[in-house]
């Protein structure tokens, strides 16, 4: 009698705990970023694509969550021999969604497994497609086409494992480190060529400008000299005409007059010693005195 309320309490508690357990085991939530697979005793029975509060059978059902988001896959760096026998290092990345969860669960089960398979698919596809192309087309607008082709191929092959490949892209396509020294040398030689050409062009310009200027100077000076000569000879001619018209009046007198000028100009300022004969007419008076003429 005494412990009757206690029993009731114990019963209520036990019931409450049981009810709680049932509720908690049959309710689960699916996040906005998730999708869930309900597995009943090891057999997948349903896919839950919508987020929210969901119910399942307790004990027998287990829920496996998968991402609905776009998932990244970075493939490790791969050395690839291109169509023109050049080796490059290629990193690719893939973006995919789990599209068909049931198929995905049956074929790969985990994301890790899917990544491994997808990585192989991408690797072989990239190797095959790039193996046909020369480096030049990777470094051109053709790259997009090649990448599209790889993407389509991978997408096609990934469909059977429930994966929707949204994109495959070349993240990095570089020449391996061993060859970069050769590239550097080539770049250097190209720059040297350019630098030499530029300097030579500078020299060319300078020579053109200088020689042009010198030619112009010579032309200017020679023209001036020509004009000068013409002007001078005109002056000379004019002077000669003036003289001729004046002196032509009496050439005899001019000779006399001009020789006197010459004596004055050439003899007067020097100190010549003249040996004179007293017979000279201007000395007659010195010798004979007046009246003897």
């Amino acid at each position: 009698m005494n412990n009757r309320p206690l029993i009731i309490v114990a019963f209520i508690v036990a019931f409450a705990v049981f009810a709680l357990w049932i509720v908690s085991a049959s309710v689960y939530t699916v996040d906005e970023t998730q999708q869930a697979l309900v597995v009943r005793l090891g057999k997948p029975v349903g896919v839950v694509n919508t987020p929210g509060l969901k119910f399942k059978m307790p004990m027998v059902d287990t829920v496996i969550y998968y991402d609905t988001r776009l998932l990244p896959l970075e493939s490790p760096t791969d050395q690839i021999i291109l169509g023109d026998q050049k080796r490059i290092e290629v990193d690719t990345y893939t973006r995919y969604r789990i599209a068909d969860l049931l198929l995905f669960y049956k074929s790969v089960r985990t994301v890790e497994q899917a990544n491994a398979q997808l990585s192989q698919l991408v690797g072989s596809s990239v190797r095959r497609e790039l193996g046909r192309e020369p480096l030049g087309s990777l470094l051109s607008d053709k790259r997009a086409k090649i990448v599209d082709k790889i993407q389509n191929e991978v997408a096609e092959k990934a469909k059977p494992i429930g994966i929707d490949v949204v994109e495959v892209r070349i993240h990095r396509a570089d020449l391996p480190l061993e060859t970069s020294q050769a590239i550097y040398d080539r770049m250097k030689s190209e720059r040297e060529r350019e630098a030499k050409e530029l300097r030579a062009q500078g020299f060319e310009w300078a020579q053109q400008i200088q020689s042009n200027a010198e030619r112009e100077r010579t032309v200017i000076l020679s023209k001036a000299q020509r004009n000068s000569k013409i002007t001078r000879s005109e002056g000379d001619a004019e002077a000669a005409r003036t003289f001729a018209s004046a002196y032509g009046k009496d050439p005899q007198f001019y000779k006399f007059y001009r020789s006197l000028q010459t004596y004055q100009q050439t003899l007067a300022d020097s100190v010549p010693t003249l040996v004179l004969s007293p017979n000279a007419e201007f000395l007659q008076n010195l010798i004979n005195g007046p009246g003897k003429q």
Binding site: L267, A268, D269, S270, V271, P272, T273, L274, V275, L276, S277, P278, N279, L283
Partner: peptide, 8 residues
């Protein structure tokens, strides 16, 4: 200004 030498 000249030096003169007169020789007969």
């Amino acid at each position: 200004k000249a030096n003169k030498v007169i020789i007969d």
